[in-house]
């Protein structure tokens, strides 16, 4: 059964969790605080602030989850707690 340490497994998992939460918070809220400033930039017709809320942040979320899954998998294997 799981020992309390497992090569610092839980510490590393927590570290990854905090990183993900910071990125999530940034793309969910922080970036949209600056919508007025971003809207003064236009790319392909999209005001950047509008684009961030309609596409940019969503793309970031998708990438973040796949990155998290790969990173957590790596932690699992390095700490010897991965599933067979």
């Amino acid at each position: 059964m799981a020992s309390s340490d497992n090569g610092g497994y839980w510490e590393r998992t927590k570290g990854l969790m905090y990183i993900c939460m910071v990125v999530w918070f940034f793309f969910s809220f922080v970036i949209h605080f600056f919508v007025h400033a971003l809207n003064s930039i236009t790319i392909l017709g999209f005001p950047l602030g509008f684009w961030m809320a309609s596409q940019g942040a969503l793309i970031a979320f998708v990438i973040l989850i796949f990155w998290f899954a790969a990173k957590q998998d790596q932690i699992d294997r390095e700490c010897g707690v991965a599933e067979e």
Partner: peptide, 24 residues
């Protein structure tokens, strides 16, 4: 318009919480 994007963001970003905090 822009304000409706709160739904687009809200109904997608939650999956980060699902993946990192709860589902596994």
């Amino acid at each position: 318009g822009y304000d409706g994007l709160a739904f687009v963001l809200g109904w997608t970003g939650g999956y980060v919480l699902v993946a990192v905090l709860v589902a596994p």
